[in-house]
């Protein structure tokens, strides 16, 4: 019982989600699909409770042990502040919640992201070596594409953009397509394995 019911649920819902695509002519299919998808959204929202439980318990334990007290307290305080402001004054524009979002969350996230420009520079120097024919192809294509996408490249040789377009449209297209087709097949077979119950390990032990 502990495993059969979940397997049945997965089988029925998975099969239905495949079949409903081909039954859109029937008027009852649409609302039913909507309910099922909404249900999925609701269930996933509930797991956030587990997430909060995990994050709070981990950090509180750290603070108790006296590790990184200042940052961990700041973390929990920032979390509590955002939640309090959000429920107190709403999240629309002009609220303190939104102000914090724009002036703290936005720059922090964007800066984290932009660190990558620097990491790439260091990786370019350190890791990208033309060790083999394949790696050389990768590097040459990368350089041509980089040059072709910038105004300076266009100035150096007016055909650079065309060369870069050619790479994008022919070898890149072929490579991407091969991966897409392969991955699609992998996805279909993996999905079917789950639905048909051949893979059931996600249901846990005992």
């Amino acid at each position: 019982m502990k495993k059969e019911i979940p397997l049945l649920i997965a089988f029925l819902l998975g099969t239905w989600m495949i079949l409903e695509n081909f039954l859109s002519g029937f008027s009852w299919v649409g609302p039913m699909k909507e309910s099922i998808t909404n249900g999925g959204i609701v269930i996933m929202a509930f797991t956030y409770v587990l997430g909060i439980y995990s994050i709070v318990s981990v950090n509180v334990a750290r603070i108790r042990r006296g590790q990184d007290v200042v940052p961990k307290v700041a973390l929990l305080a920032a979390l509590a502040l955002m939640v309090a402001l959000g429920f107190w004054r709403g999240h629309e524009e002009g609220t303190p919640f939104n102000w914090l979002y724009l002036n703290l969350y936005v720059p922090l996230q964007a800066t984290m992201f932009s660190l990558l420009a620097f990491y790439i520079a260091s990786a370019a120097f350190r890791a990208f070596r033309a060790r083999s024919l394949e790696a050389t192809l990768l590097l040459v294509c990368a350089i041509l594409v980089m040059v072709g996408r910038i105004p300076v490249g266009e100035k150096l040789w007016s055909a650079f953009p065309q060369v870069s377009d050619w790479i994008m449209n022919i070898p890149n297209l072929a490579g991407k397509r091969a991966i897409m087709i392969g991955a699609a097949l992998g996805a279909i077979s993996t999905g079917l394995r789950v639905i048909l119950g051949l893979e059931r390990s996600y249901l846990g032990g005992e």
């Binding site: 997965a10 989600m17 269930i43 097949l185 279909i188």
Partner: peptide, 18 residues
């Protein structure tokens, strides 16, 4: 049960999507 609900439904959607 909810786990199977979500995984089953999404596996189905992903198959069609692929």
């Amino acid at each position: 049960w909810p786990l199977a609900y979500v995984i089953g439904a999404f596996a189905g959607i992903q198959i069609i999507q692929a």
